[in-house]
């Protein structure tokens, strides 16, 4: 109960509020998770590569929608799927068209608002799930730890460098897919490279499925036309993203960012 109360108040926290919240939890990784989810929903994250556009403002392009979905997978430990299934992210689906902000209609704003509200629950779930594993802060008798962790500057999702690796490798795979491939061999190598970003959860026979479908293979090898790009988008959402979300669900957060600050090691300047 206490936890969800914290989330309820921090879910809509502004940047300056985040600093206040920091003082209240004793688990810095949770603060970081909280801030990351806040970025997904409300403020966006221009520093991430590729940048995250906030859901509440709507997405400017299909690419922004795709990268947001991938980032959300990591930052909700895969729970984004409970609210937005891959089919919802397909072009012409009843949801995605409203998530793109091109039209700026009142219906769009309402759908986005409701989706953000729905996602708040998914974020709660990730928060609760992660809470047990985030019990790492060592405190002294005055309630102060050696080093305050600043959720603003922490770049590792959930303070886990491993999560950032996964996040980067997934984003990297999507960037490659988005720009298309020169040769059939490049497609094969790209599929091979999916083992890491999916934590080995690549769908069986994926390469076969691509090369045996002339339309899909053509779209993979056509780096110019908009139609091919849209086909690749559908492929990314329908085939690649479920594996990425499955990978996000397997994350259990091993080693976290080092903030222990040994006092007699070399001073990190």
């Amino acid at each position: 109960m206490v936890v969800s109360a914290t989330v309820a108040t921090t879910g809509r926290a502004t940047m300056s509020d985040a600093a206040d919240v920091k003082a209240r939890t004793t688990r810095p990784a949770l603060d970081v998770l909280d801030r990351d989810q806040d970025r997904l929903l409300y403020t966006g994250d221009p520093k991430r590569d590729p940048p995250i556009e906030p859901l509440s403002g709507g997405f400017s392009t299909y690419w922004a929608a795709l990268t947001w979905y991938q980032a959300a997978g990591i930052r909700t430990l895969g729970h984004v799927e409970d609210v937005l299934e891959p089919s919802d992210m397909m072009p012409l689906s009843s949801v995605l068209e409203y998530l793109l902000n091109a039209r700026g209609s009142p219906e769009g704003r309402y759908v986005r608002l409701r989706t953000v509200e729905g996602l708040s629950d998914a974020c709660d779930l990730a928060y609760k799930e992660f809470r047990e594993r985030a019990n790492e802060r060592v405190e002294d008798e005055q309630g102060e730890s050696w080093k305050d962790v600043d959720p603003e500057s922490e770049r590792n999702p959930l303070m886990r460098p491993a999560f950032r690796r996964l996040d980067r490798s997934q984003a990297g795979a999507l960037i490659q897919l988005w720009s298309g491939f020169e040769t059939r061999e490049d497609v094969g190598r790209w599929v091979r490279s999916l083992a890491a970003p999916t934590n080995g959860e690549t769908p069986e026979g994926l390469l076969n499925a691509i090369v045996s479908s002339p339309t899909l293979l053509d779209a993979m090898l056509d780096t110019d036309s908009r139609g091919a790009k849209l086909t690749r988008y559908r492929f990314a959402v329908g085939t690649v993203m479920p594996s990425f979300l499955a990978a996000a669900r397997t994350l259990n957060g091993g080693e976290r960012t080092d903030s222990s600050g040994e006092t007699h090691e070399a001073w990190n300047s």
Partner: peptide, 26 residues
């Protein structure tokens, strides 16, 4: 610039504050 965790470097005044805080605590 990034530190070994991939975070951008803290401003130097923050580094200094953390030094004096440790001295106060320990």
């Amino acid at each position: 610039f990034e530190d070994e965790n991939g975070n951008c470097l803290d401003p130097f005044h923050k580094k200094l504050k953390s030094l004096s805080r440790t001295a106060r605590i320990s």
